[in-house]
Design a protein around this nucleic acid. Structure first.
Lengths: 193, 193
DNA sequence: CGAATTATAGACCAGATTATTCGAAGATTT
DNA sequence: AAATCTTCGAATAATCTGGTCTATAATTCG
């Protein structure tokens, strides 16, 4: 292998697919190795443990999400569309990611501190983005926001509420519809009449 | 429990969801039990073994598929639509079922004779349905079929060819598009000009 | 009621699975 | 050809898991 980093990337991509499908516990090192057409033990030359791979995967996925979100809000002009895009992309991605979480809550596995770290960092980033969208909306006289910080927090709380049914993975939840309803309420309470 | 059969049904439904998600091997008795909010050992009061549950699930799912298929072709009049509906429902269902198969090919597990039995019976049924659609199409002067038996076989072979990528579970396959292409070829080679 | 039965679940077990280690041996570089 | 990098098969210790057994709760029924 010319480049060690390059190979790590391959492992992360490949393992990521398997983790997202089966979760942490049900994914075996053998499967990851087979997917890479390698001997199981070879992987330990690049990663310390299964957990380290998982950590790298989650980190990687979080970065992808961040990129998707910024692209989504850059792709449109109006604050309303920005907000709508942001919320939609966020929830769609989360649906994909929910397997990882599901994986973590699997049993004991409390010792995944890094997840909490990522989560906190991500929460702060999200708040900043939401505030920015709100701020610009207010600037352009489209939103009517008294305090962008608290409003952003309120929106974030709502989105987290929507995540819950994804955790418990009840297939019947129609996220799309609920999202639209929430956006509707949000805008009609926020848009200047 | 008032009715033993009733409870077996519940197990089949619940276990079916888990099997279809994780496959035979990755699904544990504990999970099935938890999903039913029961102790693992209680399930053995109703089923001999994990395999017996799996067998019941596959059987149950096969029946559902049969029903969906007959409904799908009854819901439309023209032979072309019947054929199109049949093919679509079949492939869509198969996508869902592919996990079961995937489960079986997992490793050794050759001893699932009953799968082969179901498969053979199902193949015969499918051929009969295809022949009927073709026959009626020819009757109504919409299809131009020399020998409905061989034509039905040809169609069945094509559909099986489409199943293969589902087995190897390459997410990128766009079954929908390939199906449309195949149907297009099929009809334009079959419909009277 | 109370004996017979139907259900349920916890403790347990033997065998299978699995993450991880280690040393030996291919490759590749120097 | 020595030194280093990379791969892997075999071995292992810990954990998991399908299945059993027994005690006991719930229900039926005489």
């Amino acid at each position: 292998m010319v480049n060690k980093e390059e190979f790590r990337r391959k492992v992360i991509i490949s393992a990521g697919q398997i983790f997202s499908r089966y979760g942490f516990k049900k994914t075996t090192m053998d499967e990851i190795a087979k997917a890479l057409k390698m001997g199981k033990s070879s992987i330990y030359y690049y990663f310390e443990s299964k957990e380290e791979i998982f950590e790298a995967v989650v980190l990687h996925e979080a970065n992808i999400l961040r990129n998707e979100l910024t692209t989504a809000i850059k792709s449109v002009e109006s604050p309303i569309d920005k907000m709508r895009n942001y919320v939609f992309v966020r929830m769609k991605s989360f649906e994909k990611l929910s397997n990882y979480y599901n994986a973590i809550f699997d049993k004991n596995l409390d010792h995944f501190d890094f997840i909490e770290t990522i989560r906190e960092k991500y929460d702060r980033e999200e708040l900043a983005i939401l505030r920015l969208i709100l701020y610009h909306g207010a600037r352009e006289n489209i939103f009517n926001v008294a305090n962008s910080e608290y409003t952003a927090l309120a929106i974030q709380t709502t989105l987290k509420g929507l995540e819950v049914p994804l955790f418990w993975k009840k297939k019947e939840v129609n996220i799309e519809n609920r999202l639209n309803a929430i956006l509707d309420v949000l805008f009609n309470g926020i848009v200047k009449k």
